[in-house]
Amino acid sequence: MNKLDFKISLFLSFICFISGFFVLPYQLDILQRTLPNQYDEFIGTIPLPINLLILVTSFQLFFISFGLSLIGIKLARKTGFSLNIFTSLFNKEKVSLNKKSVLLSVIFGVFIALIISGADRFYYQYQIPLIRENTPEFSFLALLVGVLYGGFFEEILLRLFFMSLLIWIFQKIFNRNKSSLNNKYYWIAIVISAALFAAGHLPATEMLFGELSTNLIVRCFLLNGTGGLLFGYLYWKKGFEYAVLAHMVSHISLQLLFIPLFY
């Protein structure tokens, strides 16, 4: 096993482990505020003490993210994706940030937060009563979950692992002559990963609203899919770390900028 890849994977999975301590409390908090009756029913069905369940969740995220990271890093290196910042960091080399890429990541993150909050504030609250009835407020718990779980675990799963896997498969099928892979295959991988990213939010959407109407499904794919497309582009063109940065900035902007601005 490559020691460098092991160190990077261990670092990423440790962050996911920490995120696990906030994911379940965050989900329960949302459920309690929006659907208190279902919250009481759910609490009654939990077979373990909450604190123990939180610990189990953290270890699950650790082991899953560690395995996905190890595989994803190897696939990324075979398919030309970059992890230059983490590579330099764990090789004890000077870490060089591309200022233009950092700026682009920040712009993308702020834009995604604007789309998500703006769509609910100016359109979906008039289409979906539960959104109108539950005005969003700043949540430190939501901020932590967004930055740690969203920024790291979701990017490990959908960009580092899944998108790298798709490109590796495309290379095996369509690139046997070893020439550079056509850009269309990268866009296909980006779109599929973004769609999977959006679909992954459907269970949470159903739990939050108690149903999955056509309007809610479209909202889920539109708001989350936009982020997935931009994160995928950053992973392809700039590197994994910049996709993580943009994802983190989107949650920071949502909590610290657009929720106070719009509400």
Rank of each mutant, 00 (worst) to 15 (best):
R132C: 10
N134W: 08
N134S: 12
N134Y: 07
P136T: 03
F138R: 05
S139I: 05
F140V: 13
F140S: 14
L141G: 02
A142F: 07
A142Y: 08
A142G: 15
L143C: 07
L143G: 04
L143I: 01
L143Q: 03
L144V: 14
L144S: 05
L144C: 06
G146C: 00
V147L: 11
L148T: 12
L148E: 02
Y149A: 13
F152M: 12
F152S: 06
F153S: 13
E154H: 10
E155M: 07
E155F: 11
I156E: 03
I156Y: 05
I156V: 14
L157V: 14
L157A: 14
L157Q: 12
L157R: 13
L160N: 06
F161L: 13
F162M: 12
F162A: 08
M163G: 04
M163E: 14
M163A: 09
M163I: 02
S164T: 09
S164E: 04
L166P: 02
L166M: 14
I167K: 03
I167P: 04
I169N: 05
F170E: 00
Q171D: 13
Q171S: 13
K172R: 14
K172C: 01
I173A: 00
I173H: 00
I173M: 02
N175Q: 15
N175G: 07
R176T: 14
N177Y: 10
N177L: 07
N177R: 14
N177S: 15
K178D: 13
